[in-house]
Write a protein that binds this DNA or RNA. Sequence first.
DNA 1: TTGGTCTGGTGTAACGATGCACCAAGGTAC
DNA 2: GTACCTTGGTGCATCGTTACACCAGACCAA
Lengths: 371, 371
Amino acid sequence: MARVTIQQVAAAAGVSPSSVSNYLNGRTNRMVPATRERIASAIADLGYRPNRAARQLRTGQTQTIGLIVPSVGNPFWGAFARELEVAALAAGCNVLLCNSERDPERERRYVEELWEDGVRGVVLCTSLPSLDHLADLIDRGLRLVTFDRPAQADDPASVVSISINNHVGGFIATSHLTDLGHKKLAFVSGSIASINRTGRFRGFCTALEAVDLDPATMPMWTGMEEVPFGDVESAQVGRRAALDLFDGTQEPPTGVVAINDMTALGFCRGLRDRGLEVGVDVSVVGFDDIILADLYDPPLTTVRQPIARMAGLAITEVLKDPSESEDGRSVLLRPELVVRQSTSAVEGAAATESVEESVEGKQALTRAEQR
Amino acid sequence: MARVTIQQVAAAAGVSPSSVSNYLNGRTNRMVPATRERIASAIADLGYRPNRAARQLRTGQTQTIGLIVPSVGNPFWGAFARELEVAALAAGCNVLLCNSERDPERERRYVEELWEDGVRGVVLCTSLPSLDHLADLIDRGLRLVTFDRPAQADDPASVVSISINNHVGGFIATSHLTDLGHKKLAFVSGSIASINRTGRFRGFCTALEAVDLDPATMPMWTGMEEVPFGDVESAQVGRRAALDLFDGTQEPPTGVVAINDMTALGFCRGLRDRGLEVGVDVSVVGFDDIILADLYDPPLTTVRQPIARMAGLAITEVLKDPSESEDGRSVLLRPELVVRQSTSAVEGAAATESVEESVEGKQALTRAEQR
DNA sequence: TTGGTCTGGTGTAACGATGCACCAAGGTAC
DNA sequence: GTACCTTGGTGCATCGTTACACCAGACCAA
């Protein structure tokens, strides 16, 4: 109960509180080794732990990092939150968790509150095209790292973004299907009013064009605009898409690229409702590689995001002194295709050269990488 | 940037900082309405927000609640974390997220750190049979609510536990299978050195005995002791169990109760590896009702935990003044069976009376409820 | 000797909110 | 008129840490 204060440590070590403070904050260069020793052992003996509140009151800084995700209920965000906590812990920080539910208003409120609480920085997982609603806070010095949202042209200069290259991701997912001989492909997502969705969709188109297919002729599904966001709902989006695309009124796709694994799994569920077999009747590629992708029946082919690495990057960037950080730094990682059993060659198709290996494909991919 | 302080508000309202403080802390009874008004509008005009650090330094209290889960990477804990955050938000609190990875040492370190940071209380999701490693902190006044861990006889008096009745849960899961005519049942879990596991297993046994089956004659699986904990691994546990139970060396079960949904899904994956069909060749019941249970192919029959309600309870308990809270309060909620398609009647079995409806079953269930 | 520089420290005023102890003014009882 | 409440509100020390400004003493060069 009785807290040990810096004064008690100072008394025990026979120095002034200032010296203990200097020691604690690494200003140890102007200090004779013997003094350093005495302070160190006094701290150990008394079991002293600095009082965070006092420290924060003085410095205006915490060791807390704010994390805003759409919803930790979504396994992808849950996994990311865990990785971020691991990385933060290694850097001596804590993570304050906030679920935005993809509501820009909540997002704004949370960021504001975190800022007022003096967090070191905020890792914001959002897919809103604009950061205007946060512009004033960023101006006032908020350290913001966005995740899963590539930098946009008009983003404030100090914002760092960490993301996979969605264009490339969409491309390799789609090329995998065209390699397997699929010619009728659909891209399934709820709304494409988000950054990563547009990127992935562009990759989808690029891949089709690389094998002379016209995106415009592909089966389209643009339903459920009434539920533009929401994560738990993304599975419902997939399911609904499957039911609609296979309702017999149009020529259905043989291959599908889903915006994320939850949507892909929902889509698989919808296929099953229609009596179709995933990986046999229809090939499905997901996105994210959540833990359940591998567990599913059949295991889901998907595009993996290297979340552990991305979480580590997010932490180092968020803790970086603004002065030593190049402005507008945008990290774009290359995603990786994980082939499992939800995709297979279209019946009777000759094995084709991998698009990714072909000349046109390589050119298209290179162009995608550069965006 | 420039923070508005209580002094500025006081100046604007023409009162002393003390009065503003009194206003802020509800000591409004000794204050003439006009004064109250002036303070209120000064706060609004200046956009004043109290400084948390200063307040905490003075009072030693935060509005932060610590949440320790095994791992938010597990969809069940992710979903719970989200619900808890919703409930905390409604109570004006924030949630600090910690992943214990089921390591008692980390658990201890986190609780200690949270306590030192002055959190209002800690919601600890653990399944350790003992809280000894936290005893001294609890003695010193830590407000602790455990989740998913029914109260134990020798728990410190001030600890509140919120959990489902695992015995009942195990019972209804198992009875569902015996109702369907299954007579060879297995209980699958990694290690049973955790509280909820023993409870669920007891329910499994009670249900078997209620229909005159002997738990001792059931196919057993007790492998992977080397991985006693870990959440991502629980799927691996299930998968391994399926591979082992169906390796041809013993008479395999026709129905399985898994310790949780992740294990159940892993088990389904293992069945598939063995060429068996879930819900046809083998019936599987999970536990938790994570979002993926409904998405799986086939959708998983499972025992639902009412996490939203439990999260709400956890928050009210954790914020309750220790003086007005009965000691040792233990909330035991009744779980609910959700029947989907991973379970079906055993071939050729006559429809039997539901055990739960039978006299013996009712008696057994009543006994289970009372523990 | 004087002045200057370096080394190894220390004194002290904040940071912003809190809440106890106190007080002035007005009312009331006898 | 005095003693005593009550009402409405204020003064001020305090929480624990920080970091700037300062200082004493040693050392050295001219």
